[in-house]
Write a protein that binds this DNA or RNA. Sequence first.
DNA 1: AATCCTTTAATAACTATTATCATCTGATAA
DNA 2: TTATCAGATGATAATAGTTATTAAAGGATT
Lengths: 147, 147
Amino acid sequence: MRRETYNEFRRLCQKHSLAATHQRQKIYEALVSRPGHYSPEEIYEQVKQDLPSISLATVYKNLKTFVHAGMLCEVSPHHGSWRIDANHHPHHHLVCTRCRSITDLDFDSLGPVKLRGKLPSGFRLEKFTIEVRGVCKACTAAETKQH
Amino acid sequence: MRRETYNEFRRLCQKHSLAATHQRQKIYEALVSRPGHYSPEEIYEQVKQDLPSISLATVYKNLKTFVHAGMLCEVSPHHGSWRIDANHHPHHHLVCTRCRSITDLDFDSLGPVKLRGKLPSGFRLEKFTIEVRGVCKACTAAETKQH
DNA sequence: AATCCTTTAATAACTATTATCATCTGATAA
DNA sequence: TTATCAGATGATAATAGTTATTAAAGGATT
Ligand SMILES: [Mn+2]
Ligand SMILES: [Mn+2]
Ligand SMILES: [Zn+2]
Ligand SMILES: [Zn+2]
């Protein structure tokens, strides 16, 4: 692991009161040291090369911990449940990052997305999907109440 | 089921060479007759009120069939696998609807999204996520080869 | 080095989804 | 209308993905 990455890792662990374990170090490195959008399984396979006895559950737990701490992001808030949309009109989605609720957002609520550069060659565009992530009214209310 | 919805359903089934079964009719209706972004389980519970002996597997199979035919859409192309992103720079994603691969797309490749109207009251915005759905180079090549 | 609290590995449990297969049914043509 | 049959269904087994449990081990602090 690069010295710079290692220092950043220690700093982040301290900031979030997390013990800087070997496992966490390797998991973090597996994600940060190469571009990509990996699944827990892929991270597990990668880390196992250095720490053969690591458990898949440890990978899951720490990925959750890191995401919760804001050190990493989820690609999609919808993994884990298949959701179907019958609305054929062009529209966007409001997604609550707490309760995962999905609400339609009128097409005209946002200005159009404009292509500036070129897409990578060979990619055949089908459509733009815009998700607005945030915290819904109900979840905001619930959080406020607790404090 | 409204006459109009029923006719549309028959038309779509004919167009896609699908038998217009009771089960399909009720599944279609459960989605089209009320706004929402339902899971297979939720559709199952709804349809079961009319067809108590319907199987959950039938719901899954037909939702897939309908999505494949373009009669319904998936809310997210990422269901089923949790993917982690370590890239903290603002950026977008290219997602292949065939192989589900995810590629970063530079922030400047798209113009900024502008808020026009108001978001629904109480929704606390965190960030915009733009996914560009399409077919990647490899999948396009693979499809071309087959014909 | 001793202590304490956190983290880990192993694995059981659980949830979501898909596969299998015998039976049944909608569509078509006689 | 009835016969036919490819395609659809229901029951359930199997698989994939994720989370919970718990005894043992390891960082952090002193
Ligand atoms: Mn929608
Ligand atoms: Mn990315
Ligand atoms: Zn919410
Ligand atoms: Zn592809």
